[in-house]
């Protein structure tokens, strides 16, 4: 980030504030509890935050576990598949097939093997988070410039060394995008899985609010999820900037965190 930070932050507020005002105007025109505005949502947050904070822990723990499982398995697998081209080409359509199954259709199958507890939900979350991770990693590692290969060959690197020293760093920017998509996906599916296979967590809370027509209460819970998503997203962006500075320095400076 350059100088003029204050001015930058102020101009950055224009879009969000405009959106909030438009939303409030729409809600005011609708005039029904089914379409609350940001003001009603803020009131609900004030009223309900102890309950929401109590429930959100379960959701976040499962989302985190599912995300970690997906990241640990899928990033190495994606790089591997990108290198082993024949296998990669064979597995690629398989990824496309497994990726398009909607969670409500996957849940019953997972339930048959993993029951209705935490494990089942973590499996579903990991499944959803795996898709952007493996796709981005695979694309990145497959699409590496031929030059990178030739460099590796002239340095007489082994296959494993090539993956570790050439492929991984060169794929990192795209993996980072995959990580960000996967985090959002893990959060989203952790709520969905709680709505479909519910015992506790924020998904259950949202559903209960909806069934009782407390739409503002449901949105208050979503606001918490959203803000957590934003914070994690910013963290990842900061890490990206620190570790991938070479990628960002090569172009003009950006600061969209």
């Amino acid at each position: 980030m350059k100088a003029g930070l204050g001015k930058g932050a102020a101009s950055g507020l224009i879009v969000p504030v405009a959106i909030l005002l438009a939303w409030q105007a729409l809600a005011w025109r609708a005039g029904t509890p089914l379409f609350p505005g940001p003001w009603q949502v803020a009131l609900s947050i004030w009223k309900l935050w102890p309950v929401i904070v109590g429930q959100i822990g379960y959701t976040l723990m499962r989302a985190f576990a599912g995300f970690v499982v997906a990241a640990v398995l899928m990033i190495p697998l994606g790089i591997l598949l990108g290198r082993l081209k024949t296998v990669g080409r064979l597995v690629e359509p398989m990824m496309d097939m497994l990726a398009t199954l909607p969670p409500p259709a996957v849940v019953p199958i997972v339930m048959l093997f993993a029951g209705t507890g935490d494990i089942a939900k973590i499996v579903i979350i990991a499944y959803a988070a795996a898709v952007p991770l493996i796709m981005n990693t695979y694309e990145a590692s497959k699409g590496l410039h031929v030059m990178a290969n030739q460099v590796a060959r002239s340095l007489r690197l082994t296959r494993l060394e090539t993956m570790l020293h050439i492929d991984l760093p060169a794929s990192l920017p795209m993996i980072a995008t995959g990580l960000r998509l996967a985090i959002a996906s893990a959060l989203l599916v952790s709520v969905t899985s709680e709505m479909l296979l519910a015992t506790n967590g924020i998904g259950v809370f949202i559903q209960r609010q909806q069934e009782n027509f407390q739409i503002a209460g449901g949105l208050a819970a979503i606001a918490f999820i959203s803000v957590i998503g934003l914070i994690i997203n910013n963290l990842v962006f900061q890490l990206e900037k620190r570790w991938l500075f070479w990628h960002y320095r090569s172009s003009e400076s950006h600061s969209d965190g």
């Binding site: 101009s11 969000p16 959106i19 709505m195 803000v227 934003l230 600061s255 969209d256 965190g257």
Partner: peptide
């Protein structure tokens, strides 16, 4: 600068 946080906020909403 304005839209990036909005996107990050909306994205995890089921």
């Amino acid at each position: 600068r304005g839209f990036a946080p909005v996107a990050a906020l909306i994205q995890p909403i089921p």
